[in-house]
């Protein structure tokens, strides 16, 4: 299959089940909401070492947030409910509670309960105030700029992590240009994030290593400098490969994001240096979600 002269390989991306939660962070203006959001989603690129993958889903207008202020929707993904709860509590406590004028609310109202405010409230040292309206409970915790408002609980749902595709290009500039377009296209979609820096990964990995203490190591088949030393999967004219990794709340959301991302990456086609689109998988042994590129694309 070809798309604007770009070869689409007959392969699939392999994704795995994961637990996910959504938080809504608000603040007095966009600047401070983003400060809290970027801090809370920092060091959250891969569950391998960060224990969580997180990112900004989208910005929210005042009319879309519970307290009528500017907001940011954040998605968090972890391999277990316990780890997700621990990470959320730590990140709210250290990154959102500490950010001036911030407040945090649940972004998902169905699924298993994950405590957030019910743990953070103890920071109030007995001066915290509980407010329950309908079924929702909030905590008002006194802080030095007034009060930090935090919803008592959020909910987690079963989700999909590790959707991906690789952009094989003639050089780094061409690969980056295509990757940035792909990330921009995915950023406009609901229920998905691209957790890596700028949404792009340059250090794709394979399972295992020659070193026993390493569980994953560099994806040598796609490293241009190793061509000739290892069995390379790169076309001869390729000098750079970048990967887009996608986490989403549903399989449909990830599939949609992969499709839109690949189409955006191939917009200018081979004439701008994009040679091939492929995907990373582990022979079907890692995850139950398989996204076949041929089936995704029109």
């Amino acid at each position: 299959m070809e798309l604007n002269g770009v070869t689409i390989k007959d392969t699939f991306a392999e994704a795995f089940p994961i637990k996910a939660a959504r938080l809504i962070v608000t603040a007095r203006d966009e600047k401070w909401a983003m400060h809290a959001a970027t801090a809370a989603t920092g060091f959250a690129t891969s569950v391998i070492a960060c224990k969580i993958e997180a990112g900004i889903e989208r910005n929210l207008t005042a009319s879309e947030t519970p307290d009528g202020r500017f907001g940011v929707s954040l998605l968090f993904f972890a391999v277990s409910g316990t780890e997700l709860e621990n990470q959320l509590q730590n990140r709210i406590g250290q990154c959102i509670l500490t950010s001036p004028t911030s407040a945090v609310f649940s972004g998902i109202d169905e699924g298993k309960v994950v405590g957030i405010g019910k743990a953070i409230r103890y920071f109030g040292d007995g001066y915290q105030i509980s407010k329950k309206f309908g079924t929702r409970r909030y905590w008002r915790i006194p802080v030095m700029d007034g009060e930090f408002v935090c919803e008592d609980v959020t909910h987690r749902v079963d989700a999909v992590a590790g959707g991906n595709f690789l952009i094989v290009a003639t050089n780094v500039e061409a690969a980056l240009f295509a990757a940035e377009r792909a990330v921009a296209a995915i950023a406009s979609l609901p229920d998905v994030i691209t957790p890596f820096p700028g949404g792009v990964v340059r250090s794709g990995s394979k399972v295992g290593s020659k070193y026993k203490f390493m569980t994953a190591s560099t994806n040598d088949a796609y490293c241009p400098t190793l061509r000739g030393l290892v069995e390379s999967d790169l076309p001869s004219e390729s000098q750079a490969v970048l990967e887009i990794v996608i986490d989403g709340l549903t399989e449909e959301a990830v599939a949609n994001a992969m499709r839109e991302g690949i189409l955006a990456a191939c917009t200018h086609g081979r004439k701008e240096g994009v040679i091939e689109i492929t995907a990373s998988n582990f022979g079907g042994k890692l995850g139950k979600h398989h996204f076949h590129l041929y089936k995704l694309l029109p």
Partner: peptide
């Protein structure tokens, strides 16, 4: 000065269909 949790009450009033604009 803070508007506090008034917006949260407003959110609940909207959920129960009560036409009261607190702001």
């Amino acid at each position: 000065e803070g508007k506090g949790f008034l917006a949260l009450i407003q959110r609940y009033l909207e959920e129960i269909g009560e036409p009261l604009n607190l702001c």
